[in-house]
Design a protein around this nucleic acid. Structure first.
Lengths: 335, 335
DNA sequence: CTGTTAGCGCATTCAT
DNA sequence: ATGAATGCGCTAACAG
């Protein structure tokens, strides 16, 4: 308890001014004479004064903290978002507190409440699901919120999204241009907006080229490694299946590749993928001819600035929806 | 501003008690009659009272927030640590605020100060470097801190570490057991404790088996993908180089594998690795016969509880060093 | 330009 | 077992 807890009072005394003046220099209030300002600064310095943010927060009811909740802190997509957000936040004096929605929308709602109670100034949410069961809860929080990655239709807020439709379209088009005719669709829960968009892009490309979409080879599923593995197993064992696939998320992609490598046998060599997301380990995904790269860093940056602007009432009034173009990356297959 | 900001005063009035009593039930003070307690609880409920943590913090000078700073938020190791920590923290009512040391120890020190000023109750640090230039700064913070992954020798604090020596030893032993005789050492900055430990394990295994450690084929370097790529290029082009390598971090491993896949030619097929870390994409690391898995989740859990115990003065008084055993994982090579 | 004053919402003596 | 009063450190009217 020998904390040297130096307050503005101490500084004020030392500089022969009032606490109000000290507070003013702390807040860069222009109407302080340079002379007194310097005196205050000096006093602060010599006393080793550190501002108490908690006290300030109590007064201003602003914590300069923003919360981010994601399905899984250890997911690659999220990490890059967080990294990029953090960089922006720091520039404007904010901190980032993280929380996870883990298994369920229930957890998600709980995390949201947890953060709100901690009085974060705003929340960036990478939504778990597609349902809107907890909309009312979110509204009740009454603090700015921006959605990233997935939209929740019917809820009017700021959103930072990728051009999923365009990305899917481009990737499938590129495959077709290289002569692939039968192209399956793999991965993604059909009710989330990202999957919907990517599927729509796939469909548009196929239809535009007059190619048939074979419903048997449209395989939605949970975005997990095991799903990709098992489904690819079925696919390989089905002699009639296409050998070209558009895969809409990276875990499914990992699983599918993993199956082909370990059990794919001779037929594996025939397979070609186009897939969403470009990660550090993407060169190892050896069946992936085209990767749709989302500008994750930019998206994180945008989300951070969107939420801060909202908090500081700097942005335009209406809800903003920022949609980011994807980039198609061609890989050299080295099977 | 139509915030329905309900305070303990409102609750007190509603329940016909004093604010002191409300505060007592809030803090589970046993000396409140059940009757009045229920009345208070009811009042809280009907008014929709939410505690203001900022006000509480100002009073108690405890924020129930712990900060974690890591070199890179988007690194896999860190995210698993954070994920696991978060789970534990939530159980005991803490939040996790993250920060990064990015490029430099300077940044690291800055992050540390930033967190301290925000009055986090404790800090978990995954140290960047090996120097101890900022030790004094850390001490000056005067708040509990635990180191994870890397130790900073000479500084007496709680630490959560992996058994790097043992992991390295086991992996190299396993390679030797399969008949490998010439084994190189790849990756890691030689001055950080993790590298030191892993290298020591490698040396012990080699010496125990009477095998020569060829200094030309001990290749330290920055833990990056490009370093792994370039170094593997040199290795492959050197006709005299060993074809079995112990790689001490995952980025170097990715880079090395990437080179072998894309440019390794015929000789690539001869290569065998043992390597630290097991990640979701590890099955794609096709030259990796043995992976040394660190119990990352347990380590995160331990770090979380260590810091919380320290804050709440629950643990033993002296600094604790927790060292976690690694697990050797055998992969089937599918080149 | 600067000082005085009054809380922000809560925890906590000290009474009773 | 409960209440009255005080202050954590800071900001923001309002005066001057």
């Amino acid at each position: 308890m020998a904390q040297n807890t130096i307050t503005i009072r101490n500084v004020a005394q030392r500089a022969n001014v009032s606490t109000a003046t000290v507070s003013r220099v702390l807040n860069h209030d222009p109407r302080v004479r340079d002379e007194t300002k310097n005196a205050v600064l000096e006093a602060m310095d010599s006393l080793g004064y550190k501002i108490n943010f908690v006290a300030r927060s109590l007064k201003t009811s602003r914590t300069h903290t923003i919360g981010v909740v994601a399905p899984d802190l250890s997911g690659d997509f999220f990490m890059f978002i967080a990294e990029s957000m953090n960089r922006e936040l720091i520039l404007r004096g904010y901190s980032l507190v993280v929380s996870t929605s883990r298994d369920s929308e229930e957890e998600e709602a709980k995390s949201l409440m947890h953060l709100a109670e901690r009085l974060v100034d705003g929340i960036v949410l990478i939504p778990m699901g597609s349902s809107n069961a907890y909309f009312s809860q979110i509204s009740a929080l009454n603090i700015p919120i921006v959605f990233v990655d997935r939209a929740l239709s019917g809820y009017e807020t700021d959103q930072v999204l990728a051009d999923n439709e365009g990305g899917g379209y481009e990737a499938v088009k590129a495959l077709i241009r290289e002569g692939h005719r039968r192209i399956g669709f793999l991965g993604g829960k059909p009710d989330v907006t990202t999957t919907k968009g990517r599927f729509a892009g796939y469909c548009r490309a196929m239809e535009e080229e007059g190619l048939e979409i074979e419903q048997r080879y449209v395989r939605f599923g949970h975005p997990t490694l095991p799903f990709g593995y098992r489904t690819m197993e079925e696919i390989v064992k089905d002699p009639d299946s296409p050998e070209t696939w558009f895969i809409v998320n990276v875990f499914t992609h990992l699983g599918a590749t993993n199956y082909l490598i370990s059990k794919g046998g001779e037929r594996a060599k025939q397979f070609t993928f186009a897939a969403f997301d470009e990660m550090p380990y993407s060169p190892l995904l050896r069946y992936c001819r085209y990767a749709v790269q989302q500008p994750i860093a930019e998206m994180g940056r945008a989300a951070a600035n969107l939420i801060m602007d909202r908090i500081e009432r700097k942005g335009p009034p209406g809800p903003q929806i920022l949609r980011f173009k994807t980039r198609l990356i061609q890989h050299t297959l080295a099977r």
